[in-house]
Amino acid sequence: MSMDENNRPLSPHLQIYRWQLHMVMSILHRATGVALGLGTIFLTWWLMALAAGPSAYETFTTVASSMVGQIILFGFSYGLFYHLLNGIRHLYWDAGQGFEPATVRLTGQLIMVISFAATVGTWLAAYYLLGTL
């Protein structure tokens, strides 16, 4: 009886889960690419303000260091880490490597964890250096 339950086929579940993670990650690569593209407007403002002079730069830093600015920058940094790490996985696939389902799942899960950890670590380091932490 319990043997039977343990041996119940799990594969449909696992396949659906795997397919979902893979789908989500594939869409997220594209979404972060577009989001980072919009982020280049912010990057442009930063460099243009820096070139324009101290008062233009102060306007930029006021916005960038505001609550809303920090949340948006946090989002961009997550997008960059995710896109960068998953981009490396794409390049690895392009080289004909890492196609085994188990490897795809493992690298996918690693990227989900590391991209989040790297984002939080980056911001903790920045706030620590600022002395506000």
């Binding site: 101290p54 250096l129 600022l130």
Partner: peptide, 19 residues
Amino acid sequence: VPLAVWFVASLVALAGADY
């Protein structure tokens, strides 16, 4: 890959830097 990592690391090191 290396350029973006360098850029983010630089911005962290420059956190709060003045003009």
